[in-house]
């Protein structure tokens, strides 16, 4: 790491495995939710939370914390699993996912869950929100950094590119994007629905600095997150090539598990594979 801190990659991999267990368990309990995009995103999130995000688990509202904007808000199980593994949420919280009164709402919601920085649910909005956070930090001369996680399907929303344009124009050097490039959206594979093409090149054309990474190789993720964190020449995007449903064989590359929960037997198999 740039700050000289040693990162235990195998510990991060173990954390990601525990998060995957949470993801399949809470979607099974809720009988709904979005396991596929949670499992594809989780390694990236563990790399960010586990190495560089300045976040006080005992004081999630700390004003000068770094922000993590989960723009693909349907992947809420990934967010809740991280907060669970970090001790902000407990087992009962996450197992109440999607039930009446639960702090774990269907889509991430800053008013319901401590440690959640953005109320998502409608795709395409998080990058604009993150840019607002980024320029507010600059106005306050704060060095807090803003991470935004986007889904690749989400980049079909025009607002993403409005924000990408504005971020470069306003020199948002404290803004980092990570795109979960799992190539599947709600209805089907993206190349069937509407392929977006080279997402990294698109960000580059808007003036961003971009790197691609294997979104399930923790060692590479740690390196690229470290690189992104130390870049200060403008906004930075990481395109993480991922597999939807990663870690659970029958969910991998299976569009059905975008928005479908595992049944009892599927849960048993999934937990076996993740053990």
């Amino acid at each position: 790491m740039g700050d000289g801190t040693e990162v235990d990659v195998s510990e991060l991999e173990q954390m990601a495995r525990r998060c995957r267990v949470d993801i399949v368990k809470m979607t099974h309990a809720a009988k709904s939710g979005h396991p596929g995009g949670s499992l594809s995103a989780i390694d990236c999130m563990v790399a960010i939370y586990g190495t560089c995000l300045r976040f006080d688990t005992s004081n999630p509202d700390w004003e000068d914390r770094d922000r993590f904007i989960m723009s693909k808000g349907h992947a809420s199980p990934a967010m809740y699993s991280i907060l669970h593994q970090m001790g902000v949420l407990d087992e009962d919280d996450i197992m109440g996912f999607r039930t009446l009164g639960s702090v774990c709402q269907g889509h991430v919601d800053m008013n319901w869950t401590k440690g959640v920085d953005f109320s998502a649910g409608s795709l395409g909005m998080g990058l604009s929100f993150g840019l607002g956070c980024a320029l507010a930090a600059k106005m306050d001369s704060s060095d807090r950094r803003i991470w935004v996680m986007l889904g690749d399907g989400e980049t079909q929303e025009g607002q993403i590119w409005e924000a990408a344009m504005a971020a470069n124009y306003h020199n948002a050097t404290n803004l980092r994007v990570i795109v979960d490039r799992n190539r599947i959206q709600n209805d089907d594979f993206m190349d069937v629905q509407m392929e977006i093409g080279d997402i990294g090149e698109k960000f580059r054309s808007f003036g961003w600095t971009v790197k691609e990474v294997d979104g399930h190789d923790m060692s590479s993720l740690v390196d690229v997150v470290d690189w992104a964190n130390s870049e200060d020449g403008g906004p930075v995007a990481i395109v993480a090539n991922t597999v939807k449903g990663n870690g659970v064989s029958f969910m991998e590359n299976n569009p059905s598990f975008h928005g479908m929960a595992p049944d009892d037997e599927e849960l048993r198999i999934a937990l076996e594979e993740l053990s």
Binding site: E63, M110, F118, M125, S128, F129, A136, A137, Q159, M165
Partner: peptide, 20 residues
């Protein structure tokens, strides 16, 4: 924020969440 009202509204929300 240019001729991009959707971005402006969420940009505003991000700023408000940061105390502005």
């Amino acid at each position: 924020l240019g001729i991009a009202e959707q971005n402006m509204m969420l940009f505003a929300a991000g700023m408000a969440s940061s105390g502005k």
